[in-house]
């Protein structure tokens, strides 16, 4: 875990956070495989903590080679609250539609292919965000509710991104993971944008998590 915001977490807290994320994503993989009936692997998440205003530059650097992206946003509310941003490179929606529509159920509907791909992206995003956040919340004994997910940017060019999509003073916990479905690699980035209040709660929850093994 990098030290972009060094004062925020102690080394031990960072280690616990990383392990909680590892477990959450591992369990999410297993449950997702059952829920969507597709073999899923979520790679070990790489965790970074940064300030809201650093996000555009960070995204730009991280996703350099990918060109344009689609961004799905979803608010979540619990003791740990914030927004989840799920970012897929443009083109992933086509692969996701193929994967999630193997029975051709959706393509028989009389809908424009663009809308179908877009809505699939939002639906898949909802499941992936729900799986990851749900597991993190469960491990830390929290219950969260969610707003409807929205596609906030379509074919968005990160290099044009001058303004941060989140408040400058907020914190972003960047969780970089690769979603691998069956044989296909779909790389996705999940960011949890949160506030000081939730970070304080998170620090307590992390220490409670570790104490629970005593």
């Amino acid at each position: 875990m990098s030290d972009i915001v060094p004062e925020l977490f102690t080394d031990e807290e960072k280690d616990i956070l990383q392990e909680v994320m590892n477990i959450a994503f591992g369990q999410a993989s297993a449950d997702l495989a059952e829920v969507i009936d597709i073999f899923v692997i979520l790679s070990v998440p790489e965790i970074h903590v940064l300030k809201g205003h650093q996000l555009p530059g960070y995204l730009c650097e991280e996703l350099q080679s990918s060109g344009t992206v689609n961004i799905i946003e979803q608010g979540f509310l619990g003791k740990f609250s914030g927004q989840a941003l799920l970012i897929f490179p443009t083109g992933a929606e086509k692969e996701l539609l193929t994967l999630f529509n193997q029975d051709q159920e959706l393509t028989t509907l009389d809908i424009d292919i663009d809308i179908l791909e877009q809505e699939t992206l939002v639906e898949v995003g909802n499941i992936l965000i729900g799986a990851c956040i749900g597991k993190i919340a469960e491990l830390l004994s929290d219950v969260v509710t969610y707003d409807p997910p929205r596609l906030i940017a379509k074919d968005y060019c990160l290099e044009d991104c001058q303004q941060s999509p989140v408040p400058a003073e907020s914190f972003a916990i960047s969780i970089r993971t690769v979603f691998r479905f069956d044989q296909q690699n779909v790389e996705g980035y999940l960011f949890l944008i949160t506030n000081q209040h939730s970070i304080d709660w998170l620090k307590k929850a992390l220490s409670t998590f570790l104490e629970s093994f005593e």
Partner: peptide, 26 residues
């Protein structure tokens, strides 16, 4: 009783999140 609806039910029961059936799609 089709895969798409059932998948969403399983997902809500497993992860405790919400599923949204948009008018645009359905």
């Amino acid at each position: 009783d089709r895969p798409h609806f059932l998948r969403n039910c399983r997902s809500v029961l497993t992860f405790g999140h919400f599923c949204f059936f948009s008018q645009k799609l359905h």
